[in-house]
Nucleic acid binder design. Structure first.
Lengths: 169, 169
DNA sequence: GTGCAACCGTTGTACCTGCAACCACTCTAG
DNA sequence: CTAGAGTGGTTGCAGGTACAACGGTTGCAC
């Protein structure tokens, strides 16, 4: 019956797990982002935005839905879409059913940009995610992370659209 | 022997895995950060900074080492330390061996702040990381993430200091 | 149909971060 | 001792994000 000291509590496995999530994410994304920027001249946020649109019916998504999927605030998404529109990869379209709403729609140029970025990006992910983990580890990690995402109150609900893979099984 | 189309490649499990890393990280950290801010009035970056210091010998770390551990650039860490110093949780100290270098040292106030933040933070992590995964899932996740971090060219090398748990085994 | 709360998306503002340039210091070669 | 390259840390600057406040629209209660 030892009283936990601050020191001992700092070694808690929960703290470790959380810290690991931060570190692994920072390590992987910073490298992958750098490589994507080098090979495709496009930040990772753009890529994630474009791929969500490309996977959606009619290559379009409501702003709010998109914000949820890429994990940005509404205002953050507005600015991001502004920049991507400026590049010609996306265009805004009014929503006929709800005059408040707006769609972000993938343009042909956007589709082409995504396509040409894809190979390098896949290679990059291979290097920094697949190779270290192995195919089996990758599958387990994906599963665990999906559980986390779906358990979180934030973001897109598990049922909505296809937020990066609608769960296998 | 089907040629992979852009569409089919977008469904690639590697893309999914990477997207899941982004989503899970965003979902978990945003909630945990919000909660920590509410209960301890301290952003997650401060907490991570303080806990690294508290785990280090003499509660001090060189700026570069610290930058590596919290996954920030040198300039980013300089500013962060500036802010935390302003709050009185840390102080700078000259390095006697190398007059270029500087230490960040945890102050008693910093230790106290860390201590009082710890309980709420642990609870928060419990809710959003441990409960959804279960103890076994948590262990597996930690292991996989550690593998990722250590494989990455970025950040602290596995051997350095104790970057959130010096690997068991 | 009128009022009111809730919602969608944008804008003003402040904060945080990285990159590049910089200064101070150390180390090595000659 | 000195020159020059390399390292540790800080500063100027630009870019990206969140929070709060706003205008426009919808849906519900009455």
């Amino acid at each position: 019956m030892v009283v936990p000291t601050a020191r001992s509590r700092c070694e808690d496995e929960r703290i470790t797990a959380f810290g690991m999530l931060l570190e692994a994410h920072a390590a992987v994304t910073s490298v992958v982002n750098r490589e994507l920027e080098a090979t495709a001249g496009m930040p990772i946020t753009w890529f994630e935005l474009l791929i969500r649109l490309s996977r959606s019916p009619e290559q379009r998504l409501r702003m709010s839905e998109l914000a949820g999927q890429v994990g940005l605030s509404h205002s953050g998404l507005t600015r991001l879409v502004d920049r991507v529109i400026e590049a010609g990869f996306v265009q805004r379209e009014a929503c006929p059913d709800d005059r408040r709403g707006a769609f972000a729609v993938l343009t042909p140029a956007g589709g082409a940009a995504l396509d040409s970025a894809l190979d390098g990006h896949l290679e990059s992910i291979d290097r920094h995610l697949v190779t270290p983990l192995g195919p089996e580890g990758l599958a387990r990690l994906t599963d665990l992370l999906r559980t986390l995402r779906d358990a979180s109150p934030t973001g897109a609900s598990p049922s909505s659209a296809c937020p990066t893979g609608p769960s296998p099984a």
